[in-house]
Design a protein around this nucleic acid. Sequence first.
DNA 1: TTTATTTATAAGTATATACATAATATCCTG
DNA 2: CAGGATATTATGTATATACTTATAAATAAA
Lengths: 233, 233
Amino acid sequence: MTTTEFNTWQSVQEEVLRRINSREWKPGELIPNEAELSLEFGCARATVNRALRGLAEAGLLDRRRKAGTRVALHPIRKATLDIPIIRHEVENRGQAYRYSLLSRTLKEPPPDIRARMQLPAGTRLLHVQALHLADARPHIFEDRWINQHVVKHASNAEFSTISPNEWLVINVPFHGGDIAFTAVGANPREAQILNCRAGDALFIIERNTWNDQGIITTVRLACAPGYRLHTGF
Amino acid sequence: MTTTEFNTWQSVQEEVLRRINSREWKPGELIPNEAELSLEFGCARATVNRALRGLAEAGLLDRRRKAGTRVALHPIRKATLDIPIIRHEVENRGQAYRYSLLSRTLKEPPPDIRARMQLPAGTRLLHVQALHLADARPHIFEDRWINQHVVKHASNAEFSTISPNEWLVINVPFHGGDIAFTAVGANPREAQILNCRAGDALFIIERNTWNDQGIITTVRLACAPGYRLHTGF
DNA sequence: TTTATTTATAAGTATATACATAATATCCTG
DNA sequence: CAGGATATTATGTATATACTTATAAATAAA
C-alpha cells in the first residue's frame, strides 16, 4: 500500500479540505485529533496544527480545546476587502487623481454624529468636506468629523493638498474600526457636488475609526454613480 | 536593567506593533531580522516568526526572503466580511424569515451573463428568481444563474422550499469567487418585487462562485432600500 | 440532586534544531 | 562589461519534545 505522505502543512490542508468537500467528514462531525492525524499523515503534530489552524481561521473548522475539532456546520465564507487610500485606489486604475478641499471648520457635530462618536454635548470637532476626483470627474465626496481631542496635531493639518483620508492613515495609528455600506439617493447638495441628479443611487461607505483613547474619526464617503467595490473570496 | 521578556508570540507581536505605531520603526524601514529579534526578545526564532507572520498577513509588514522584513509603506487595512446564508442573516437579527420562489426556468442566458461565466453560445442554464422576506417584508431579490453542467444534481433541485442561496452553500463545495457591491436605482420590476418605487436606491451584491470545473453560479442580490452591510476591521 | 473538585484530554504554545527556498550579492568568465 | 555560475542570507517550513491551558467529563462532597 502506497499511502501518499503529507509532509507539508499545505498538503495536509488540501487533504483535509478534500475530505470536507467530499463529505468524507460531514458538517458538524468530529474529526480525528491532531495526534491521530499526524500519525496517519506521517508528519509532526505541529504540521497538522498549522494546517487545521488555517482552516479554522477560514471558518471551515470549529476547534475547541479538549472538545476537539469538528467540521463547521455552516461554513461561513469570509471575503477580505482592502481599505485603500482613495488616491491609491484611483491611481491604481490608471486614472488621474485630484483632490479638492471644500470646507474645513471647527464646530459642534449634529446629534447623530455625536452619538455615534460617544461624545458629551458641547464638544467641538474638526469638520472636513472634500472631493476626490478621478480623471477630472467627481469620484468620492468625503464628509468627515475628526476628534481633535484624540488627534491633537490634527488641528494643525491644513488638508489643502493632502486629503484627511490620506493624512489620517499616514499620521494616526489606530486599533480598529467598523464599516457600513449602504445605498441612498443623492440629496441636492451631494448631486451638485458629484455632478449627478438628485435621487441618483449613491454607494455610501461609513467608517468609524478608533484607537485606545476613543473614536478618532467618523467619515461618510458618497461615491459617484457607477462606483463598484470589488473583491474576491 | 530589567528588560521585559517577550516569551509569547502575542507579546512579541504587541511589542512590534508598538514600535511600528510609535514610529520607532518607520514606514518603509527595514527591521532587524528574526534571529536578532529572537535574541533581543529572549525567545525562539519560531516565536518571532509566528508574530511577524501575523502582522505581515494583516498588511502591516512586508516580508521577503533574503531581503528581510520592512514596515509596510502603505499599511493597507483589511476588513473581513462574512458571507452568510440570507436566512441566517435574517434570523440572527431576530426577524422572521420567509422565502418565495418566483420563477425557475432552463434557458439561454443573456450575453452579459454568458460572458461573465465564460460559456460558449447556446449553453442553457438554470435561471432562478426568488424573494427573501424578513418579517413579511421584501428583503432581498435573488436573481441567479446556475451552471447545471458543473452542478449536475442542481437540475433536480426544486428550490420551492429552500433557496438556491442556501441549497448551493450546503450542497456544492467551491474553491473561490468574487464579489462586487454597487448601488443602482430600482427598475420597475425590481421596484414591484421589493415593494418600493422605481428609481429608489438599491444596494446590489453580485457574486460569482467557482470550483475547479469552472464557474458554478452567478447571482445578483438586490437588497431592499435601507439595507446595510456592516463589519469591523 | 445539586454543586464543588478532580482528572483526563485535545488544542495551544514554546524551543532547539535542521533543512528548504527565494532572492540578493559576489565572483568568475568570456 | 555583460552574463552566468556561486555563495550568502533571511525567511519559510518540518520535527521532536515539553509544557500550558481550556474544558468536558467523571468523581466526590454538600
